[in-house]
Design a protein around this nucleic acid. Structure first.
Lengths: 229, 229
DNA sequence: CCGCTCTGTCACCAAACTGTAATATATTTA
DNA sequence: TAAATATATTACAGTTTGGTGACAGAGCGG
């Protein structure tokens, strides 16, 4: 175990509280009081996860998240946003900026730790090339294959990557722009509507097995993979 | 049993931790803190498996893996890469260099041991000259022969080696570059498309028995041996 | 030296994949 | 309900990728 977590939070008491809770759980902690120090620390000594406050003195948490996502070094580090506001809109913006989860203050240490563990589990699983399975639908990066109840699914390269991304980040909405960044790569110029077409193609591959219902549209926001109806 | 494992890792505590875990499981351990000692040890007292850290003081893990693959003595020793980075890209480069598996730090001893056993199981079959069989198709390294439901299959030398590699590593995609490294040997400069031609020849040999369907194309990725449809 | 097999390349064709635009449907909003 | 927005679906043309047969050189054994 022993994962490194970077806490980016300007209020010292909150920071210390979190540090205390996390160190007790066996995490290794780095702290940064503002965005610039956070950027420096993250590139210097790569953490396994970043806890990011929404409101910072210099950069906003969103802006900072965007920067982490742009840099190759920090691109794949999972980010959890901390925020006082509980509004849906903010949540959407936050997720759009590339956060993996979102915790609203005040939160219990127990909840925070649970979410951290969940996010780390997800991200380290994908990195290891482990097959990801959700309710009978499974994707194996190693053999580059998708199985629906053990039947091989015919699927093209882009659809494969799309599904892989979705299955690694289930139950989360992604905007089209977000998907283009994460699945296609961040410096491509592609029409956002193109995502729709690939979603369509992905659904078509999964439809014979009924798994197309896992790829869900969230109107005016984007798409989500969910194994819950 | 009692396999010899060479640990190549510069940080002493990590090395000792691994040694402790593996010796408890009944493996015999050799340690090397850097690339050059590793090369010397491996040629001196051939191990059955190499655990290779990604970051080493002198050579990079990738470079070292390449060298092992080049040397006739160490060419067929399975390699497991250890790495702190969780990025997909790194994984691809690592496998390209000829690693058989890939474990990201931090890992549990249990996981490491499981992977070691899996890799050894796969490779010791071929090393022992045991025939490998998949659903009626069997390859015997000893007699240098391929049997399809007990009928001898006409097959050329390169196609034999290709099939041998595939059958020893089933259900896993390999890029053309990886196949060139692992089947042809890593210091040849050969056109990647040449692999296609040999795949074609291999399929042609197997076609009369219907086994050509085991050699599968994964579009824009490479090829895979699979006994599943 | 000749005929044989094996190899790596190439050129050409077929198939698969991709992004876009046009059209049809659905959803929201005024 | 109609207009305005957003998404679904289809068709298509360009591009990339894979399949295949032919061929020339290398190596070998007779």
């Amino acid at each position: 175990m022993n994962h490194k977590i970077l806490i980016v939070e300007d209020e010292r008491p909150v920071r210390e509280m979190i540090r205390f809770a996390l160190e007790r759980t066996g995490f290794e902690i780095q702290e940064a009081p503002d965005g610039h120090q956070a950027l420096a620390m993250a590139t210097d000594n790569t953490p396994d996860l970043i806890l990011l406050d929404w409101m910072l003195p210099d950069l906003s948490g969103i802006e900072l998240a965007r920067r982490f996502r742009k840099d190759g070094h920090t691109q794949d580090i999972p980010i959890i946003m901390l925020t006082a506001r509980a509004e849906e809109d903010d949540k959407i913006v936050g997720l759009d900026a590339g956060a993996d989860d979102y915790v609203t203050k005040p939160f219990s240490p127990r909840e925070l730790i649970a979410r951290i563990k969940a996010v780390i589990r997800r991200s380290s699983a994908t990195a290891n090339g482990e097959p990801i399975t959700h309710k009978g639908l499974s994707l194996d990066p190693e053999s580059h294959r998708v199985l629906a109840n053990d039947d091989p699914v015919e699927i093209g390269p882009t659809e494969f990557r799309l599904l892989q991304f979705f299955m690694a980040h289930p139950e989360r909405v992604y905007s089209r722009g977000q998907l283009l960044d994460r699945v296609w790569g961040s410096n491509v110029y592609i029409e956002e509507r193109t995502v729709d077409v690939h979603i369509r193609r992905l659904r078509k591959c999964l439809a014979p097995y009924g798994y197309d219902s896992f790829i869900q549209t969230v109107h005016s926001v984007g798409y989500r993979f969910s194994s819950q109806g």
